[in-house]
Each structure stands twice: as structure tokens, then as C-alpha cells.
């Protein structure tokens, strides 16, 4: 075997070994990479002793209530992952993208009544990008943005074959 091939095997072997090791480490510590806890996992995963964590999910349709706590704008809404949902209260200004049907990530703590008191609410947008008129077309075909993301892209963005 030529030295060139030895070096090739050595370099390739090292990169391969390192990749496998990294993947195994990530598999072992999978949960540490998660940014947020979803409502159905709160009981199992969320920290118990009143420590802050991030809660993520979709704002449930029809759950948004705007209240007024003295001079502060206060909102209450439910965050759902399709299986369970969690009531969130928040005092402060919401990001522009916040609405029903939108993904959100809220940082806060569990209150004694089991609801989630947020100190920060971030809006998460999905991977769909379309101009307003295209969104209007989709709404005409029955898509309600307050219920969630648009239908699969293949249904609205597949190249049209004319004729």
C-alpha cells in the first residue's frame, strides 16, 4: 500500500470515527438540544421546583384573550401540541407575528394552579413563504391561518403544467 493510500485511510477513518462518536453523544443527550418543552411533556420533562423553562407549541384557535391589568397589556392564550394544551398568561408586548395558529416559544414558570406564567413570548414562523395574494387564494380554498400552517406545499406550489 502506498503512503498516499495510508494517509487517505487514516484521514477518512478519523473523520468517520469522530462522526460516529459525535452522533452517539448527541443520541445520548438528545433532550439537551431541545429549545422548548411541548405541553404534553410538561409533567415528564419540565423542571419541578419553580424554575423557568421554555414552553413551545401552537396558539390554539379561539383561545386568545386580551385583558388589561391596570396599565399593562395582559394576554392569556392556550398553547397546544395537538395532544395537550397549556394556559399561558403574559404581561407585555407580543411580537408582530403572534396570532392564533402561530407557533410560539414562551419562557416562564409554572404557577401553583398549573398554568404557565410567561416572562417572554417569541413567535415562531413556519417554512412557508408566499405573497399576500397567494395566501388569500389559499384562504378561499378553505385554509384558516388561525388553525395552523398552510397545506403541504405540493398542493399550492407545484409547477403547473398548462395545456
Amino acid at each position: 500500500m502506498k503512503r498516499k493510500h495510508q494517509r487517505m485511510l487514516l484521514v477518512g477513518g478519523c473523520v468517520l470515527g469522530l462522526s460516529v462518536a459525535t452522533i452517539l453523544v448527541f443520541q445520548a443527550f438528545r433532550s439537551t438540544g431541545e429549545l422548548f418543552v411541548i405541553p404534553s411533556k410538561i409533567a415528564a420533562v419540565a423542571p419541578k421546583n419553580g424554575r423557568a423553562f421554555r414552553l413551545g407549541g401552537m396558539v390554539e384557535q379561539g383561545s386568545l384573550q386580551r385583558l388589561q391589568d391596570g396599565t399593562h397589556p395582559t394576554v392569556s392564550f392556550r398553547v397546544s401540541d395537538g395532544i395537550a394544551s397549556e394556559t399561558v398568561t403574559y404581561v407585555g408586548i407580543l411580537p408582530d407575528l403572534f396570532r392564533e395558529g402561530q407557533g410560539v416559544v414562551a419562557l416562564g414558570k409554572l404557577a401553583s394552579d398549573g398554568s404557565f406564567v410567561a416572562q417572554e413570548v417569541l413567535a415562531k414562523h413556519d417554512e412557508n413563504y408566499m405573497p399576500p395574494d397567494m395566501a388569500d387564494e389559499l384562504k378561499k380554498t378553505g385554509w384558516n391561518p388561525n388553525k395552523g400552517s398552510p397545506p403541504a406545499a405540493a398542493l399550492w406550489n407545484a409547477p403547473k403544467v398548462s395545456g
Binding site: 448527541f26 429549545l35 406550489n157
Partner: peptide, 21 residues
């Protein structure tokens, strides 16, 4: 692999792009 604030890719090799032409 993880849940993130960043959204998934709009342009993939496997499906229609989730972005208007």
C-alpha cells in the same frame, strides 16, 4: 433533530419548495 425557534428548510431535495416562485 431538535425543536428550535428557527424554522425547517424551505428548499429541500425531496419535496416542492415551500416558497412562492
Amino acid at each position: 433533530w431538535w425543536n428550535t425557534l428557527h424554522q425547517p428548510a424551505s428548499i429541500t431535495l425531496t419535496g416542492a419548495p415551500t416558497m412562492a416562485p
